[in-house]
Design a protein around this nucleic acid. Structure first.
Lengths: 249, 249
DNA sequence: CAGTGGTCTAGACCACGAA
DNA sequence: TCGTGGTCTAGACCACTGC
């Protein structure tokens, strides 16, 4: 492959071969509507088809395996794993919403968007000082017109330098990666049971002190810096979290 | 390294270099009590120290990264990520219990251990026929003498050919991998909110219809065959699920 | 025992971060 | 600019599955 094709103008956006191959394999699965247990082409055929070395295919497959898309059986073949379950919130592709509910009508209402000083909890979660500026955002998210979750999030202003109502109504993460050109590295997530206060109960059309699922997340940039802490309450009757694990050793 | 050292007698258990290296790096982190953000030695030093090729080190590091132990920053270094949180159930190392609560006194009470025929739900989850034999197990698990969760599980008898009370009181997964020599490949997990029935409420010392966290899991062997479906109810006041995500792309 | 996937290496070259 | 990590390759050899 000619090197210049793998860069985009002056931006020098390098396309990784193994990412390209991984994308194409996923595309192949989608187009051929493969289900759990269906077999993919053998390695040798893939090296020929994609015109890359065996190692590169294997790297692409390892990535797809770690993302829960496929599983590899030595001596036998490479097989498709069950797809994301529709309507479940996928905790491991934790970039909100659009990904989880692709077939639904989604929108958000912004209840708060302001610059604040962090209290003790936020200082600790975001690893900031009391005098640092923080964007505080509170949103209700709707699925098919019905309230689905209530999200509060705190962004380091030194990283996410600017936010406005329109950005916040749409996808903050999309804005962060596309407009600010930051790349999100990893996240720590905690799921627990919580209860609704009066205001939240009204939003969900239920009763104060009702149980709900709480997801607390800390997001890091690629260099390890924390930039976002968020707390999301999900209504109990609509929410299922989905995950896939490979880590047996 | 001499090849024969890497096999154990006649069993031909091959030790993978990159798994060995990964283990040693984790050990290094533990011994030196490294915290989030602490730097590991540079790649070149590790290749020398472990006497393996650069690719092998990188593979080991990729594994540790996917397991949430470290993060790698190009041009800068390799850094330790926050450790498992004590007392949180780690959903991605979902092998029960002993791993999640290493510093606690754990035990189990077996309420049921019998061979049954699957109902519709179990037929679907385990992908078995109505006439297939299934081990049904119900256990209460205690942490420091206090009931922590109630687990029901269904094992394909064609895979897990034998179980007894002692095995079930201890670790079934341990038995499966060590004694039956089966290797667990991957799992699908769903977390949702559920309520307690009268019996369960009594076990937890709380009220019927109280909310609880429900974890439903489907476990697969390395070849993709389902062998276990389980439903675990966790008491709401004691339970936090923890996960780490890398999948931002 | 053929077919298929996995491990490991040496080495060339590239990309990012910090100073 | 240099230190550090990342991509990619060709190829030798190994290991598991199923016929």
């Amino acid at each position: 492959m000619i090197k210049s094709i793998r860069k985009r103008y002056q931006e020098v956006i390098v396309i990784l071969k193994y990412e390209e191959v991984a994308k194409k394999i996923q595309e192949y699965i989608r187009i051929n509507d493969l289900k759990q247990g269906d077999k993919l082409p053998i390695l040798d055929d893939m090296t020929r088809q994609f015109d890359v070395s065996k190692s590169t295919i294997i790297k692409a497959l390892d990535i797809l395996e770690s993302r829960g898309k496929i599983f590899q059986v030595r001596g036998s073949g490479i097989f498709v794993r069950r797809h994301r379950r529709d309507g479940h919130v996928n905790l491991l592709e934790a970039q909100g919403f659009k990904n989880d509910m692709p077939h639904y009508d989604l929108h958000s209402t912004v209840l708060a968007l302001e610059v604040v000083k962090p209290d003790k909890k936020i200082q600790e979660q975001l690893q900031v000082k009391p005098e640092d500026d923080i964007y505080y955002i509170k949103r209700i998210r709707y699925v098919d017109g019905e309230s689905f979750c209530i999200e509060q999030s705190w962004y380091k202003k030194s990283v996410v330098t600017y936010l406005n109502e329109q950005i916040v109504e749409e996808s903050i993460f999309n804005y962060i990666s596309k407009a600010l050109n930051l790349s999100i590295g990893f996240a720590d997530l905690v799921v627990e049971l919580d209860v609704l206060n009066k205001e939240e109960a009204d939003i969900f059309g239920t009763h104060e002190h009702d149980a709900c699922l709480m997801l607390k997340s800390i997001y890091h940039l690629h260099n390890g810096e924390v930039f976002d802490y968020s707390e999301i309450k999900y209504r109990k009757d609509k929410t299922k979290f989905f995950m896939q694990s490979n880590n047996f050793y």
